[in-house]
Amino acid sequence: MTVGSITVRDVSKKFRLERNRPSSIKEAMLRIGRKSEADDFWVLRDIDLDIPPGSFFGLIGHNGSGKSTLLRLMAGIHRPTSGTIDSEGRLSALLELGSGFHPDLTGRENVYLNGAMLGLSRKQMAASMDSIIDFSGIGDFIDEPVKIYSSGMYVRLGFAVSVNVDPEILLVDEVIAVGDEEFQRRCMSHMNMLRERGTTIVLVSHNTSLMSDLCDRLGWLDHGRLVDVGEPEDVVANYLEAVETGDRNRLTTRD
């Protein structure tokens, strides 16, 4: 397997939705003998996907289609219920607000912690600290606990860390939308720079025009199934068509 590639084989992911799930031993004891009210919910079904090194891959789909779950599986946060996911190389993920930040630690401490989680030494992180602070525009807040940060600051620092640790694979969920226009533009240019350096990037977004601009290839997830993979223009066209058909159907049924 080459560095920077992601291989997804027959991956399915099931979450258990338990109503009135006991949260204590006491409750669990009181419920012995009663049938548990649990539903299995398949978030992803039979996903097969190869993301070659150095590619810029986009995932689109409506809310709840499983995009973020697939990204989390790639990041190793969840384990697939069946199938395998393999990724090769240093993987940095920017998944949601405050991804990987501990609220009580300062920005600087969190940068070191994140570095340690990515396998980078304190020395290596110290070397890129200035460029991280600079890129994030956090300024003196770097020595304040991140719990007092605004959502914009969270994302900016998170992104700054993710792109400055020299990742071989970068996973980005829809978070950059939180930053302002200027920051978004900086993110885009930085992602382009990483792409030129050969980093594999997987991006999740609803923004179809942005996705067709940025990505080499797109995947479209619908209710946990990968319904289309291919050239961005084609996938976006198919996706939009489906959305419009869905809208029309909904309108007609309402009448």
């Binding site: 946060i77 405050g98 990987g100």
Partner: peptide, 11 residues
């Protein structure tokens, strides 16, 4: 103490 963190990043 680390469970919230673990939901967002693998370690």
């Amino acid at each position: 103490g680390v469970s919230d963190l673990r939901k967002k990043i693998y370690f």
